[in-house]
Design a protein around this nucleic acid. Structure first.
Length: 309
DNA sequence: AATCTTTTCAACCGCCCTTGT
DNA sequence: CACAAGGGCGGTTGAAAAGAT
């Protein structure tokens, strides 16, 4: 019975749109705008269902639609964003003005077909050892984030915006640089460094109680919706790390044993590249190395890659 | 020129989320 | 609380276009 479930109308046209239908839809939308798609067909004199009208308008007739081949910049962005967020086409499309999710999806499907068609000769590089299960869901995205290594700053910024649709996206900096000349007062030195470079007034160190629950101190910093993402000259490339284990001492301080990717995409001990810092997505601000990892913040642990390597 | 194969991409389907009753 | 309608989204389809033989 359910010939076409979304439409009650008797004669509902389907398939490709004719120029006449396009004209009717354009005329109606441009004069009346759209609010309720389900009543558009009737008012516009179209034998279509509302969904079909919506799709036609959004994907094709909209005046601000961009047509034609993707530019190399767009292609790069799509590939990077897909690496970051996967098949979230609408999300990706929101970062490409005038492009639709459908178009990007189509492009990706034909692009990936081409890729798969030519199977690269057995590139079974060193496989990541399994890690804590709470981290597993992020492994895919993290691996894909290697694309960051080849992006310019502007593209990185766009990817960050997508990865972390937060008031203030993550950023990385060289702690070695920040701590230059520090003499014991590590926290103070980092605060000073951040303030000078980003305008951020302070960072908080989270604490862990006896039950190993994270305690967030009152946060009084400047990381609110008015805080623009810092764009620092010395932003390092972001590389994923994988937490192998963590231990917490009696003071509640945490020690992480991490692996991270080097420039050859190999997993190396983070001890070789100790300049990392955390962005706590759940809390929306920086955390220190003594942050306690949870399932909500684990995936956003990224590290800076020392320029010296 | 004709036919077969592959690619492209507009449109559809069903699922799911939100909102309203 | 259940239920329905509307619409957003991602996977999939299949006709047309493009390419190959």
């Amino acid at each position: 019975m359910g010939h076409h479930s979304c439409c009650n109308q008797q004669k509902v046209k389907r398939g490709l749109w004719s120029p006449e239908e396009d004209e009717k839809l354009i005329r109606y939308i441009t004069t009346h705008g759209y609010g309720c798609w389900s009543e558009v067909p009737e008012k516009a004199g179209l034998q279509r269902c509302g969904k079909s009208c919506r799709l036609r308008w959004i994907n094709y007739l909209r005046p601000d639609i961009r047509r034609g081949r993707f530019t190399p910049e767009e292609e790069k962005l799509i590939i990077s964003l897909h690496g970051a967020v996967g098949n979230r086409w609408a999300h990706i499309a929101s970062h490409l003005p005038g492009r639709t999710d459908n178009e990007i999806k189509n492009y990706w499907n034909s692009w990936i077909k081409k890729k798969i068609r030519k199977p690269s000769s057995a590139s079974s590089t060193n496989i990541t050892p399994s890690i804590a299960e709470q981290n597993a869901q992020f492994t895919y995205a993290q691996n894909q984030q290697m694309d960051f290594l080849n992006q310019d700053l502007a593209t990185k910024r766009q990817i960050q915006d997508t990865l972390f649709p937060l008031p203030c996206p993550p950023f990385m900096f060289d702690i070695g640089l920040a701590l230059e000349g520090a003499n014991g007062n590590v926290d103070g030195k980092i605060d000073q460094f951040l303030q000078e470079n980003t305008g951020i007034m302070n960072t908080e160190t989270w604490q862990v109680n006896q039950n190993q629950e994270m305690i967030q101190p009152n946060f009084t910093g400047a990381l609110d919706s008015n805080c623009l993402p810092p764009l620092m000259e010395n932003i390092e490339t972001m590389v994923p790390i994988e937490v192998q284990s963590c231990s917490i001492n009696v003071e509640g301080k945490m020690t992480l044993d991490c692996l991270q990717r080097n420039e050859l995409n190999e997993w190396v001990d983070t001890q070789q590249c100790p300049n990392f810092y955390f962005w706590d997505q759940a809390a929306g601000h920086l955390g220190g190395q003594d942050i306690y990892p949870t399932s909500s913040n684990m995936g956003t642990i990224l590290s800076s890659y020392p320029s010296s390597l």
